[in-house]
């Protein structure tokens, strides 16, 4: 598969406030993401994960290094709208990214900006609303919607641009469990059915566990980059960085520490159930 995002030697510092030294937020990041991948970026607050995300569609530009998205260098000002159509972004606060007081007009916002003709716009807006399952709400006001619904509208607003990649910056942090489920289901569907590359920034381990690949950020660098199974098997390292592992992984790890023969790459409930059953079956065999 083609690489859609290519980040090489990325350094970034916010401009120095008077009197204070500029702190380097990103310290040399090399990362490539393939078209169609579903990648989670984990890291505690201040690890640089949001800053990294903002580089993918040129909200921020590298102090050093290079970011190329869909073949476009983010530093190329002339192609910025092309870039932003290719890589759309969804933010944490569902309220602060909805522009219009009517759902369908908000979804159309980017298309209006791009000067898409009416007939095509109508079709793309309707398709996007159907894709996130919000078509019935097209005439509603966003203030009547739940957090999860608002976030789906924000996703629809990006989908309407027909991007190849969507970056979501903690889209579920402010939602209740119901809203989180809705948003995750929508994101997964976009990835599977439309082949859109997803970069999901989160600190919920259960969400990261649903991805193909996890990139763990720590202090402005990439600390781990592997499949969820591999990442979570490094329980100690993950916890040291200040992140959680799924409870089942933690239990397996605790049991291993106590000397039990249990695999360390358990990440689902089903695997945990099976492993415990196996443990007890062996146990019976021994005691006999």
């Amino acid at each position: 598969m083609e690489n859609i995002i290519e980040i090489s030697g990325l350094h970034f510092s916010y401009p120095a406030d008077d009197g204070k030294e500029a702190a380097e937020v990103l310290k040399g990041i090399d990362l490539t993401i393939k078209e169609g991948e579903f990648v989670a970026v984990l890291g505690h607050n201040g690890s640089g994960k949001s800053t990294l995300a903002k580089h993918i569609n040129a909200i921020l530009l590298p102090t050093a290094g290079k970011v190329v998205v869909g073949g476009i260098d983010t530093a190329d000002e002339k192609r910025i709208f092309e870039l932003r159509q290719c890589a759309g972004m969804v933010f944490q606060n569902p309220d602060n990214q909805i522009v219009s007081s009517v759902v369908e007009e908000d979804v159309a916002f980017a298309l209006e900006n791009l000067g898409v003709p009416y007939e095509e716009m109508r079709r793309r807006v309707d398709d996007a609303l159907k894709a996130v399952n919000m078509y019935d709400y097209r005439q509603h006001s966003p203030s009547q919607l739940s957090g999860g619904q608002k976030q789906r509208i924000a996703i629809a607003g990006i989908i309407a641009m027909q991007p190849r990649c969507i970056i979501l910056d903690e889209p579920t942090a402010m939602l209740d469990p119901q809203g989180r489920k809705e948003v995750m289901a929508t994101i997964r569907k976009m990835n599977r059915e439309q082949g859109i590359t997803i970069v999901l920034i989160t600190h919920y381990m259960d969400e990261a566990a649903q991805c193909d690949r996890i990139v763990v950020m720590d202090k402005g660098t990439v600390a781990l980059d592997a499949t969820p199974r591999e990442v979570f098997s490094h329980v100690e390292k993950v916890m040291e960085i200040g992140l959680d592992v799924p409870q089942v992984t933690e239990l397996a790890w605790e049991l291993r520490k106590a000397g039990c023969d249990i695999p360390q790459d358990i990440i689902t409930e089903q695997e945990c159930v099976e492993a415990i059953q196996k443990l007890f079956a062996q146990n019976k065999a021994i005691s006999r």
Partner: peptide, 22 residues
């Protein structure tokens, strides 16, 4: 909770296996 689950499992495993390990 995880610590409780661990203790419970270990107690049961050890209880049946007799000494120390599982």
């Amino acid at each position: 909770t995880v610590p409780y689950a661990r203790d419970l499992l270990l107690r049961h495993l050890q209880g049946k296996a007799g000494e120390g390990q599982c």
